[in-house]
Design a protein around this nucleic acid. Sequence first.
DNA 1: GGAGTGGTGGGGAAAAGTGGGGAACTACCC
DNA 2: GGGTAGTTCCCCACTTTTCCCCACCACTCC
Lengths: 148, 148
Amino acid sequence: MAGFKGQAEYSVDSKGRVAIPAKMRNDLNPAAKNTFTITRGFEQCIFLYPMDRWGEMEDEFRELNMFNQGARAFVRTILRWADEVSLDGQGRISIPKRLVEFAGLDGKALIIGSLDHIEIWDPDVFDDYLNEQSSDYESLAESVMGVL
Amino acid sequence: MAGFKGQAEYSVDSKGRVAIPAKMRNDLNPAAKNTFTITRGFEQCIFLYPMDRWGEMEDEFRELNMFNQGARAFVRTILRWADEVSLDGQGRISIPKRLVEFAGLDGKALIIGSLDHIEIWDPDVFDDYLNEQSSDYESLAESVMGVL
DNA sequence: GGAGTGGTGGGGAAAAGTGGGGAACTACCC
DNA sequence: GGGTAGTTCCCCACTTTTCCCCACCACTCC
């Protein structure tokens, strides 16, 4: 299955609905049944995992030792923000209010494909994130990939 | 079976009744027969285990060595707080008074899905819990999942 | 230029949450 | 032993939210 890639800027309507780019919809595994688990991402963005991939994530969480405080706190956070959303007839999902607020979405959304998941950012928030990056793309690449 | 996820803030009425979110009810295994074992959770919250999953938990407790003092104390605690509750026609359960007091519930309840169980928190108590967290979500994720 | 695909916006039906009332059961007191 | 008060459980009705469907506009590809 091809991973998600590319980016697009779409509008978020008053009901919190956002269209998922057709290109990414086409990359969906039929097993995902046009359904995603939407949850809080890292940094100030939203993660969207297709149902099939989310099942694998849950299996990883189940393997954690729930008698460990840190593990409980982590699982509580990722799960309490999570919700299941499906594409409507127009290829849109509706984002729960609390996630709209968390990501600071305000009329516009930046959709970014990221292999096994899709990220949703507020365009302004994403600009700030880019500006905060201390190292440039080339140095980052070296530190992440250079040790392989 | 998909695990429980998501959160919702519902009211606790004067009779100690709380609705279980429809999304979580739909994730219930029919074998659970709309029945839960409700008991004291970790941190100041209430745990709700569907009947089918609770059976497995009991099996785990049975395997503990009851000649060990700690094991006895642990099992005593979790069992003495436990009670069996069923959904009424409106999808609600009624929480035993002593658990309402333990969790500090006061008119409102925060329901959090957590894979194999559901947690019930008082919203204020949960805020305090969040504030006590020493590390942010990103660092927590790295320390919990980063070693995989 | 027309048809089809892709994104946007709104309205109505159905489901979900909330609160209250009444019957059945129990426990306590007279 | 009977009556009363308290509790629990079940059912009904109301209100709000959510979801699904329909219509429209823009762009692109024949």
